[in-house]
């Protein structure tokens, strides 16, 4: 074993320890959620708390999934998140493309301004949003919820796509245009395939922003368009908290995004490293 390797071993161990600690730190809350979903009501609230159930049960899943409105809320969440993601990408990609290709001062200001809107607390725009959606007849529809969610995801999408498109050399556009492609054709056929990892990352962030959003869904929905986060929250009432059923539904609700992330993992990794090395 060389001196270099000997010196590396403690560092590597330390890194593995840190990595392991991080995994435990991030994974434990979800693991606890998962385990709680299999506990009886007494175990779920045991004092002191128990990590593993004394008795494993699926009753929480039965109770959560048989609750009125759960399936409908799931469909609403999927609808709102899908529409919101598409809207975000359709608006953010051309906006980011324009900003990164024309490189004007106003374009830079626009990207910064878009990011600044993220600093406004959603509750501040909640009340005017309710009035606006009511005037448009969009309250209690997933479309209304999706539009509201797009106000959250769009600024981040523009910012993310700008950083991804920035890494694509202008020569690619120029080559496409020499071959007779217009700006939009160059974007669609040449640039987007290059940054598809970035698009995947942006899409996931936009999807998650809508999937997990609570406040706008609370303010804008009643019966037809309630999303699952609201239904999960309904397990907490003035009279107590149904931990078992709540964690069961939260587990079920988190599965699609976990699967989506695993499915798009290749693109996400590609997107994360996109622009890391500029040519």
């Amino acid at each position: 074993m060389s001196t270099l390797e000997v010196r590396k071993t403690p560092t590597r161990l330390l890194l593995w320890f840190l990595l392991g600690s991080m995994v435990v730190l991030y994974a434990f809350p979800f693991l606890y959620l998962l385990l709680t979903s299999f506990k009886t009501p007494l175990d779920a609230l045991a004092v002191p708390p128990k990590v593993l159930p004394d008795e494993w049960t699926l009753a929480n899943y039965e109770r959560a999934l048989s609750r009125e409105g759960v399936l409908a809320s799931f469909i609403n969440s999927v609808s709102a998140a899908t529409i919101s993601t598409v809207l975000s990408l359709v608006l953010a990609v051309p906006a980011a493309y324009g900003v990164t290709r024309f490189r004007t001062v106003s374009g830079r200001v626009f990207v910064m301004a878009a990011l600044v809107t993220r600093m406004i607390p959603p509750v501040a725009i909640g009340v005017p949003m309710v009035g606006m959606m009511r005037a448009l007849g969009l309250t209690d529809t997933p479309t209304g919820v999706a539009i509201a969610h797009t106000t959250i995801s769009l600024p981040l999408s523009i910012w993310l796509m700008s950083s991804f498109l920035e890494s694509v050399p202008d020569e690619l556009d120029e080559a496409a245009r020499v071959d007779g492609a217009g700006r939009l054709a160059a974007l669609w056929y040449i640039i987007l395939p290059v940054v598809r990892g970035g698009v995947a990352v942006t899409a996931i962030f936009a999807f998650l922003a809508s999937w997990n959003e609570f406040l706008f869904a609370l303010l804008l929905t009643a019966i037809r368009a309630q999303t699952t986060p609201l239904v999960i929250a309904n397990f907490q009432t003035q009279f107590g908290l149904e931990w078992g059923a709540m964690t069961a539904l939260a587990t079920v609700y988190s599965l699609p995004v976990i699967l989506l992330t695993l499915l798009l993992q290749r693109y996400i990794v590609a997107g994360m490293t996109l622009g890391a090395v500029k040519g």
Binding site: S79, I83, D140, T141, T143, A146
Partner: peptide, 18 residues
């Protein structure tokens, strides 16, 4: 297909009539 389905559901919502 997912988008078309989502758009279809988005028109009215899945939770019945308010």
């Amino acid at each position: 297909t997912a988008l078309v389905m989502a758009a279809g559901m988005a028109a009215c919502g899945a939770g019945g009539n308010a």
